[in-house]
């Protein structure tokens, strides 16, 4: 009973915060609502006894990704008015697409193909059962090969990001004293021989 109440509480918070992310005008608040959103889904995962996923969600998404995201949002000068420019113009199209998708999805769902039997009631685990241990064991035995490939994919992401963004330090302005000392007059001073030009009128009014 308590569990159900807790679920409804976090579920409501999740839905409200998710809709706030989309509707709120200020991008910083939107990002903060997204944090709340992640947090409440982590709580729901905890109710489902998936504590590792819940912790990973809070640590990785709330702790790292969203903080970075907030940095980016605060650093970039996002013009909200310009982002919303096309809102009214594209609204009819958006509504039509949304309605079509709603109709299609309800047709599919009511077609009788999705009437799966209820999932088996979850058996609560014995004390000392660790979700994290189980995941770790599965990852490093059964799924070792996919796990390694995922590692390689991350390596590729790093290489790609660095090779696409790193520029050679061309505007390097350090002093090189040895060269400065060796400088001679010839390098610093350029003497140009010019012909003397005839004197001109300063005003230029004469015609």
């Amino acid at each position: 009973m308590v569990e159900l109440l807790v679920f409804y509480f976090f579920g409501a918070v999740l839905v409200i915060s998710a809709s706030m992310v989309v509707t709120i005008r200020n991008p910083v608040f939107a990002a903060l609502f997204l944090v709340l959103c992640f947090f409440s889904s982590a709580a729901i995962w905890l109710i489902l006894q998936a504590e590792f996923l819940a912790i990973a969600l809070v640590l990785v998404y709330v702790g790292a990704v969203m903080v970075l995201f907030l940095f980016v949002v605060m650093m970039l000068d996002i013009n909200i008015a310009r982002l919303r420019e096309g809102f009214v113009k594209f609204l009819p199209v958006g509504i039509i697409v949304a309605l079509l998708m709603l109709v299609a999805m309800s047709l599919v769902i009511t077609s009788g193909y999705f009437n799966r039997e209820e999932p088996a009631i979850q058996v609560s685990q014995v004390a000392g059962y660790s979700n994290t241990t189980q995941l770790g064991k599965a990852l490093f035995t059964e799924y070792l090969y996919p796990f390694e490939i995922a590692g390689v994919i991350l390596l590729v992401a790093i290489i790609a990001a660095i090779s696409l963004t790193m520029r050679k330090p061309r505007s390097n302005k350090t002093q090189q004293p040895s060269l400065q000392v060796r400088a001679s007059k010839k390098e610093r001073l350029r003497i140009i021989k010019m012909k003397a030009e005839p004197k001109q009128d300063a005003g230029g009014q004469s015609s």
Partner: peptide
């Protein structure tokens, strides 16, 4: 994904 990510870059 490994193939595609490399290609995008």
């Amino acid at each position: 994904e490994l193939l595609s990510l490399s290609l995008y870059a």
